[in-house]
């Protein structure tokens, strides 16, 4: 178990930094078509925010916001959004991920529909990347602890 850090500096700084970091990650995700970034990069920054929260405030505080089960569900939902938009385009008579065909569903012109489709796909990618990175970090950081506990018991 990752314990609560007793360090005043790291704890207070991360308390002030984490919300801004998450909103920056969401900005990177949502503005992927105007500036550098996109789903993957934004997802990595989002996961980094949660990692900072785990390191500074301990596992219990983080579980209240994003539990492991929620991370697993979110990774599946991300992949589902990505594949669902692609398959929707397939159903509407285009190629896989052919966003222009989404204009039959949405009340916009095909160019606008393309932009919206890319935004949806990026949100899906970001959710999947965030959840998987967070889960990998938690597994790596807690498995060592379990081994140490086993050793101390022997």
């Amino acid at each position: 178990m990752i314990r609560d850090s007793q360090d005043v500096i790291v704890k207070t700084l991360s308390r002030l930094l984490v919300p801004f970091m998450v909103i920056y990650a969401l900005y990177v995700i949502m503005h992927g078509h105007h500036s550098p970034g996109g789903g993957f990069q934004g997802g990595v920054i989002l996961a980094a925010g949660f990692v900072l929260l785990v390191v500074s405030h301990g596992l219990e505080q983080t579980r209240k916001r994003l539990s492991e089960k929620a991370a697993g569900v979110l990774s599946s939902i991300g992949v589902f959004i990505y594949a669902g938009i692609g398959a929707l385009c397939l159903i509407l008579g285009g190629n896989y991920l052919d966003y222009g065909k989404l204009s039959k569903l949405l009340p916009v012109v095909p160019a606008e529909a393309r932009s919206l489709g890319i935004l949806g796909v990026e949100i899906g990618v970001a959710l999947a990347v965030m959840a998987v990175m967070f889960t990998i970090f938690l597994v790596i950081f807690t498995v060592g602890e379990f081994q140490e506990d086993d050793r101390s018991e022997k």
Partner: peptide, 18 residues
């Protein structure tokens, strides 16, 4: 609108930190 939605989600998750 996107910004408002993102801010509400983030504020819901981290309202006790700031």
């Amino acid at each position: 609108t996107l910004g408002a939605i993102c801010c509400i989600i983030t504020a819901y998750l981290f309202h006790d930190l700031l």
